[in-house]
Design a protein around this nucleic acid. Structure first.
Lengths: 332, 332
DNA sequence: GTTAGCAGTCTAAATGCAAGAGTGCTAAAA
DNA sequence: TTTTAGCACTCTTGCATTTAGACTGCTAAC
């Protein structure tokens, strides 16, 4: 439904006022600060109408208006001005990616840190590409009698993990690596898990080695999400409430909870905003930007902050970071 | 100063009551629950005396007594009963270390998780041994044209990290690895940093490679402390206060703040208790256990919880974990 | 369609009161 | 000298009441 110009102005005023102060706003204040040309009574009428539409709400009879989640959504979708980052901010972001990133983990961790620093909220990075990264080569190296190092090189970076394979000669390890490379080269990383059954049946000789390697890589993959800047959101006034703070931290510390939210909101390509995510976490918003790199590999970045956060800035930062990552990974 | 038997009993009663309830205790309650043989008036006199000595305090005229930090200290040092872990608890702890640990990181992370789970507080692990681990071998492997994998094997486990060394042949890498092994084998890990100047001067040919490797390993080493179970302490009632909660989380999220506390309290060998650590963090206690493994390498484990925590249990858990780690590392 | 004006509602802060908890002191008992 | 009973005193906590102030919603006039 299309709002009248004046209703748009008023909704915008309510949201922006709430964004900066966190307090409800009265009809009189709207008149004084945003719309001096009409009377507060007229604004009151409009407010009532916007409230009926579900964009605003009322805490009690004599309190000013605050936007509903719906109101926020309308704002970010239709009314919000875009914000351009300053040159300084852009170069600040880019400077975090000047040295070459060699492991998948590096990219995630670095991105998360960069985003969080740039917009002063917490940030999450989900590198969906991790599952679909294309395997290039698998090597196993001898470290000590029983400890071996498994290295999986992919088109997006390298994963290396120690594994305890027992006493196996380097010759055998080389062969095992060669065979695994033959089977998996060109396939996505996730195929390691998927084809576990087939492999262990087909290649009886190295069954034990394969299984250990698959377990090791799979285990390593458990930390799927990089989170940065948790401490940053603690200072926003909405988290003066202990329970809200606890909820926020528990969410950010828990990959299992975070993942569905991230995956869900990043269904489309591009920027998506989820306001009031999670049942108990009414006070958290997540702005996500999902991009494809190297063709079809998803890369989701997100800013996690209070519902009244600077959405415009968050979006700009995410776009900048995503573009930078894209540049890096596609260049190679 | 030695306390009379009765004063000891009363101090013990106040501390233990406070430990379990978190509330101040009155003279009458002490009489009923701990010392039925004397009147509450007598207890009141003793309480006054203990207060003068600095072990107890008073929130206001008509409130019961709570222990001071000094009182807690006296308690844990002289009055606390030792607590034996149940068989179940012991095997629970040991079961976390059954599969072989191959990297230094593994040991830290696993220990932290185990401790936190066993006593339901947050835990920190500082593997001082990391700096002094003896280097056994250094290898550099080719992953792609420019990306190489640096592997440093030590007596305590392996460190592997990706580095961008540019286009160098495997032959050269082998030689560089061989030379570095020759120089560093038998020396502590920290010598990599320490001898940076000497090396880069002595071995001009591989200077670039050496420096990159040293940087890489040093960078990796930045995360010196493993922290686990942050979310566990959030549910203790003392952290209903937002600021206390914030302080606790900020401390646990900040290695730079944590390290001096850990290093400091683990100056001696064995168990140490720091109550009310950090200026603003009056409500956190850290119980640390520091041990030497493989001769002279320090390994500090710690339990971080509210001041009124189950110290006896924490100590037992730390001892058990430390013993287990010692077994593992010394066996090899 | 817009506005002024006002009654009505709700909050938030201040005030006062009563009940209860626990101490500190005194004087008597052991 | 130590212990105890008893009581006055202090402070907290919870509750009810009041008051001032902030806004709205409605009505009637512009």
């Amino acid at each position: 439904m299309k709002l009248s110009k004046r209703k748009e102005k008023i909704l915008k005023a309510v949201v922006e006022s709430n964004l900066s102060s966190g307090e409800p706003i009265s009809s009189k204040a709207i008149q004084q600060e945003y719309l001096p040309d009409v009377s507060s009574a007229t604004i009151r009428n409009e407010l009532m109408s916007l409230e009926e539409m579900g964009y605003l709400t009322h805490l009690h009879t004599s309190s000013g208006r605050v936007p509903t989640t719906e109101g926020y959504r309308k704002y970010v979708q239709e009314l919000m001005p875009t914000k351009k980052l300053t040159k300084k901010e852009v170069s600040q972001i880019q400077s975090n990616f000047t040295d070459k990133l060699v492991s998948l983990n590096d990219i995630m961790v670095r991105s998360a840190k960069t985003i969080s620093d740039a917009c002063n909220y917490a940030s999450v990075v989900y590198f969906g590409a991790k599952d679909t990264a294309t395997i290039l080569q698998i090597k196993i190296m001898t470290i000590s009698d029983s400890t071996k190092l498994v290295v999986v090189a992919t088109d997006l970076g390298v994963i290396s993990e120690m594994a305890n394979l027992g006493e196996v000669s380097q010759t055998e390890l080389d062969e095992a690596g060669r065979i695994m490379t033959e089977i998996f080269a060109g396939k996505p990383l996730s195929s390691l898990e998927d084809q576990r059954y087939r492999i262990s049946k087909e290649l009886v000789k190295y069954k034990q080695i394969f299984e250990t390697i698959i377990d090791t890589i799979a285990k390593r993959d458990n930390t799927k999400i990089a989170v940065a800047g948790k401490e940053k959101i603690m200072d926003y006034p909405e988290f003066e409430d202990v329970n809200k703070l606890k909820n926020a931290i528990k969410l950010l510390d828990n990959d299992e909870k975070l993942l569905p939210i991230l995956k869900n909101s990043s269904s489309g390509d591009g920027v998506e905003i989820s306001i009031s995510v999670g049942g108990a976490n009414d006070d958290l918003s997540i702005v996500t930007a999902t991009y494809k790199i190297k063709g079809d590999k998803t890369f989701s970045t997100g800013v996690v902050g209070p519902v009244r956060m600077d959405y415009a800035k968050a979006i700009s930062v995410l776009k900048e970071v995503s573009d930078t990552i894209k540049d890096i990974t596609d260049k190679e």
